[in-house]
Design a protein around this nucleic acid. Structure first.
Length: 266
DNA sequence: AAATACTACAACCGCGCTTTA
DNA sequence: ATAAAGCGCGGTTGTAGTATT
């Protein structure tokens, strides 16, 4: 009974919500000093009134060294789309093939940027996008209300007209644009018997359109790495410094394919 | 300029799996 | 063998920032 009261009391005192700079510093300093050994028992010694779960999440998604934040590159988005075609919502598996990206970030990016494009629901909001939209209105207004309300399957075909806005920023660049008048859905999907190439390449749009899209919205500089934490790379399980941790290599097409096939089969 | 609508993303929650005692 | 603890994953929510009216 007494134990229960203590637990409840501790729960009551646990802080929730956004992390402050001080909290980030405390957690980072603690991990830097002691490594990761047990999330739920680390919070106290680290001087944090947070659950272990919250600490873990903050570290994994934000504080970890060599995490990349900011806009996704063309290659990253291609990888996400390809792997999602094959794996569905296996965010951690998809994220593992993207250097410096977390499952949460990939998931958020998918839900906020890609899903809508694929679903064909995105409505441009700013005037520039509106003008662009008007130019191709005939092609884009074809979807009926009932189609818009329809839920999408896990594996979704990529429509050429819906691949705009991969900026990841909500400030200066045009929020949306419609560059293609093509309305055709390209490719068959969701068929496990299709080869990896078939299933992923079928999603791709006309080269001309795609190159335009990417040219407008991507540059490697758009993404940035979180501070290096003095080049500290600690194996989360062993708390042992691990210099190689930070330099996981980006996947080649071949390894990407192997990866997806392995995951699919296992 | 203010109100409203919408977007993006950090963080939380619940569940299931694995490990430990 | 099994209950508890820890961890990781995917879905969902809350909210700050921005665009539109």
């Amino acid at each position: 009974m007494a134990k229960l009261v203590v637990v409840l009391d501790e729960k009551k005192r646990l802080k929730k919500g956004a992390w402050s700079v001080e909290e980030d510093e405390k957690l980072t300093a603690y991990i830097k000093r002691h490594g990761i050994w047990n999330w739920s028992r680390m919070a106290g010694p680290a001087g944090l009134r947070r659950s272990g779960k919250s600490c873990r999440l903050r570290w994994m998604n934000y504080l970890r060294p060599n995490l990349k934040h900011g806009n996704f590159t063309k290659e990253e988005v291609e990888t996400i789309i390809k792997l999602h075609e094959v794996l569905g919502n296996k965010w951690s598996a998809i994220a593992s093939k993207l250097v410096g990206r977390t499952d949460n970030e990939v998931k958020n990016y998918w839900n906020t940027h890609l899903k809508k494009r694929l679903k064909g629901m995105q409505k441009p909001r700013n005037s520039e996008a509106m003008r662009a939209r008007n130019r191709v209105a005939a092609d884009h207004e074809s979807s009926s209300p009932e189609e818009e309300g329809r839920s999408i399957p896990t594996s979704t075909p990529v429509q050429s007209s819906n691949l705009g806005d991969f900026t990841g920023k909500r400030t200066s660049s045009p929020d949306n644009f419609s560059a293609s008048s093509s309305n055709q859905a390209i490719g068959v999907h969701g068929d496990k018997e299709n080869s990896f190439e078939n299933s992923v390449c079928s999603s791709y749009v006309d080269d001309e359109v795609q190159s335009y899209l990417w040219a407008q919205h991507f540059s490697v500089e758009d993404a940035y790495m979180v501070r290096d934490l003095d080049a500290l790379f600690i194996d989360p399980m062993t708390a042992i410094s691990y210099p190689g941790w930070a330099v996981e290599t980006a996947s080649s097409e071949a390894s990407l394919e192997d990866f997806a096939v392995n995951l699919w089969e296992n």
